[in-house]
Design a protein around this nucleic acid. Structure first.
Length: 766
DNA sequence: TTTATCCCTATTTTT
DNA sequence: TAGGGATAAA
């Protein structure tokens, strides 16, 4: 026993030990980056089980991603034996929500009107539903963007505000619109026997409200509750966690207010800031010693985050060595930035300083990953992009999934319509016929899909009044669709998911529609086959359970969840948001520019007196910086293409906070210098690179990002010029810009275009 | 009903 | 730039 305790506490610092051993009552651990927070969580769970003989199934641990849960479980399994830890409930808030709804089918059906085969609507479905709801509320989608409605609805739902409650507090005309759309949206969700992400958290709470006995059961069962990333919980998650811990009162939360980056998703930083107020008896543990990063990186992060007003005063520190200077690099544009990143990584790999898997490139917006990927694609350096276009969001994958979803839940109108619109099976069945089916369904209070099944079941009497009143063409299409669906539905009962998949792509005619042999077709078909491979993982699951389990699982995976832990030699491309909780020896943060990091919206908000978004941007930068263990690169581009236009970029204000002595900086301007950086710039082909000189020099302030030494051809109006893409044209106008010129050219074939002189690569013909 | 073309807007981040 | 949505044409 004593030995065990030693083993589990060994190597922990005093704060960590206190966090592990204070098992009774509420505990808040404010854990700085790299301070061993996961260690505390895993050791605490192991300690509870092994030392205090707590049954694992009375412990509930909530994480932000499935990946975090998986990793924690693995670490616990290593601390104590796997068998000992079996029964431990660990996962995301959303998966806990599903679990609760699934475990109480009777009450859920009675009180919430949700049948056990409910589907989880993802982003795309939610937006589609919001569009329809906006239209159903009689609003013009051009004037009232469904996107905005959806985010307002989601905001309300994550604060447990129902449409009715919103109606009572609505103050503006806009609020009224939201209420109307919200009501339609909820109605459509229930009609489809579907829930959205917010429901996964909100419905369990409504369930508890309507039947207290259910809540009590969970309360008594979960004697110890642990919440990771507490700073990113929203109102509903807070209510859920506190409700569940209401009996034993052993709520243990870990978080870092400085890493709260999900305010836009209604994460409420007050949850962590007010923890002591909510739980006056709470034990407070501060973990401030950073074990991850070099001293320079820790100092830079500390100085950066100090500029925030909304924070608990504290200092993170480390006992690690000074390490190497942070590299700050200014590049001409996003292509040069990508080139810089790639060549620097190549250098690190070639000199044996790092392996590909040690390196991560982080960025603010997913759009930034494209140019980076292009740069990597022409190299032999393996890379992986976390997120990006997600597999399950690809159109062809969604099309096939729609069939599986409809089989599982016949009320899923969205999927039914998707099939009709996108698959050969639906050909000849247009909006008018659909209208007929919808009317019939409403009249008979049956799912729309039954209109098709009834046709397929085939009463031969055309005057049968219980049949939908289709036109001739509509009737034959409906019969065809109904026959296929009935067949597939039957098949789902008996065969594996992979076999069901085969029947689906055959009977819907979808497979044959990929026979054109174009590059695009091949790629999309390959994606569909990947879906089949994915389904094969459920080979061992009972057919009656498999479909449900599969659909649920794919609804709840996050980008990072799909991240392979054994990333062999692969460089990781990832958004700053997704990077939270990860660490890498080498980190590049790209696009550290005004407008991007901080994002322009935050700058705009600050201009009208709301500095909260800007502070969240700073925390995002802080998260990025603190991911790095030994090497940190920060880069920005003087020009960046956005909205298909070049915009000149300015170094981010966040860079100013980082003391010059921690940084080695390379900016454009000044004389070229051999070696290192100079070579990177000139490795870019084309006329530009030879003109852009680079040098090591002192760190620039914002003011002296300065005019680069760039020789521009002396463009004159009336000159005849040639452009690689637009062909020949005549210079119409030349306007000097800060460190460039803007040239308007009337092209013979493409009309008037505005180009930046340094980038246009125009050839002067006359 | 399907396909082509044009215009418009969006790019923050994700369970 | 790109993708969605509306409109026109076949």
């Amino acid at each position: 026993m004593v030995n065990q305790a030693h083993r589990l506490l060994d190597g922990l610092n005093p704060g960590q030990q206190r966090a592990v051993m204070t098992t009774e009552g509420p505990v808040l651990v404010v854990a700085g980056p790299g301070s061993g927070k996961t260690r505390v969580l895993t050791h605490r769970i192991a300690y509870l089980i092994e030392e205090l003989n707590v049954s694992p199934d009375s412990i509930l641990a909530m994480t932000f991603t499935n990946k975090a849960a998986r990793e924690m479980r693995e670490r616990i399994d290593r601390l104590i034996s796997r068998d000992t830890a079996a029964g431990l409930v660990m996962g995301t808030f959303h998966s806990l929500g599903v679990r609760i709804l699934r475990q109480n089918p009777g009450v859920v059906a009675d009180r919430l009107g949700l049948l056990p085969n409910f589907l989880i609507y993802d982003d795309g479905d939610q937006l589609e539903l919001a569009k329809r709801s906006t239209a159903a509320a009689g609003l013009d989608p051009k004037q009232v963007p469904a996107r905005r409605m959806l985010s307002r609805i989601s905001a309300a739902k994550s604060q447990l505000i129902s449409a009715q409650e919103l109606a009572e507090t609505s103050a503006t005309y806009d609020d009224e619109l939201v209420v109307r759309v919200y009501q339609e949206y909820e109605r459509a969700l229930r009609a489809a026997n579907a829930v959205d992400f917010d429901d996964l958290l909100g419905l369990p709470i409504r369930l508890f409200d309507s039947d207290h006995a259910v809540l009590e059961r969970y309360q008594r069962r979960f004697r110890y509750i642990l919440v990771d990333e507490y700073q990113d919980t929203n109102r509903v998650q807070y209510v859920l966690a506190t409700a569940l811990s209401g009996y034993w009162n052993n709520l243990f939360v870990v978080g870092d207010p400085d890493q709260s980056i999900y305010g836009w998703r209604q994460a409420d930083i007050r949850n962590i800031l007010d923890f002591e107020k909510d739980f006056p008896t709470a034990e407070l543990v501060h973990l401030e010693l950073n074990y991850r990063s070099t001293s320079r990186i820790v100092q830079a992060a500390d100085r950066l985050i100090r500029d925030n007003e909304q924070r608990i005063e504290r200092t993170i520190r480390t006992e690690n060595g000074e390490g190497e200077p942070i590299v700050l690099r200014e590049l001409a544009d996003q292509n040069h930035e990508a080139q810089f990143v790639v060549s620097e990584i190549r250098r690190l790999i070639n000199t044996g300083r790092a392996r590909g898997e040690d390196v991560a490139i982080m960025y603010r917006t997913t759009a930034q990953s494209r140019v980076l990927e292009e740069a990597f694609r022409v190299t032999d350096i393996p890379y992986r992009i976390v997120g990006g276009v997600r597999f399950y969001e690809r159109k062809e994958v969604r099309d096939v999934l729609a069939v599986l979803r409809l089989i599982h839940n016949p009320q899923d109108r969205l999927s039914l319509e998707r099939i009709i619109d996108n698959m050969p099976l639906g050909r000849g069945f247009g909006p008018k016929a659909l209208e007929t089916a919808v009317t019939w369904a409403a009249l008979h209070r049956r799912p729309i899909v039954d209109a098709f099944l009834v046709m397929a079941a085939g009463s031969t009497d055309p005057l049968d009044s219980s049949r939908p009143d289709f036109s001739n063409a509509g009737a034959s299409a409906a019969t065809r669709i109904g026959t296929a669906l009935a067949f597939l539905r039957e098949r789902a009962r008996t065969v594996s998911l992979a076999e069901l998949f085969d029947s689906v792509v055959e009977k819907t005619g979808y497979r044959d529609s990929f026979n054109q042999g174009t590059e695009d077709d091949l790629q999309r078909w390959a994606n569909i086959l990947e879906l089949r491979a994915d389904l094969e993982r459920y080979e061992t699951v009972e057919p009656s359970e498999a479909l449900s389990a599969y659909l649920e699982q794919i609804s709840l995976i996050a980008d990072v969840d799909a991240m392979n832990d054994q990333a062999q030699d692969q460089v990781t491309l990832i958004t700053l948001h997704s990077a939270k909780g990860l660490e890498f020896p080498v980190v590049f943060i790209t696009g550290v520019e005004e407008g991007l990091l901080p994002i322009s919206r935050a700058i705009e908000a600050e201009a009208i007196g709301d500095s909260l978004p800007l502070e969240e941007e700073r925390r995002l930068m802080y998260v990025g910086v603190t991911r790095a263990k030994t090497l940190l690169y920060l880069s920005y581009a003087a020009n960046r293409m956005s909205y298909g236009r070049f915009q000149s970029g300015v170094a981010s204000r966040f860079l100013q906070a980082i003391p010059a002595e921690l940084v080695r900086s390379v900016t454009r301007g000044g004389q070229s210098r051999g070696g290192g950086a100079g070579r990177m710039a000139s490795s870019v082909s084309g006329p530009l690179s030879s003109r852009v000189a680079s040098t090591w020099n002192d760190r620039p302030g914002l003011a002296d990002t300065a005019a680069p030494v760039v020789e521009l051809p002396d463009y004159q109006t009336g000159q005849r010029v040639f452009h690689a893409k637009f062909g020949e044209g005549v210079v119409a106008e030349v306007v000097p810009r800060r460190d460039d010129v803007e040239i308007s050219v009337m092209f013979d074939r493409h009309g008037r275009k505005r180009l930046m002189g340094t980038l246009a690569r125009l050839e002067v013909l006359s």
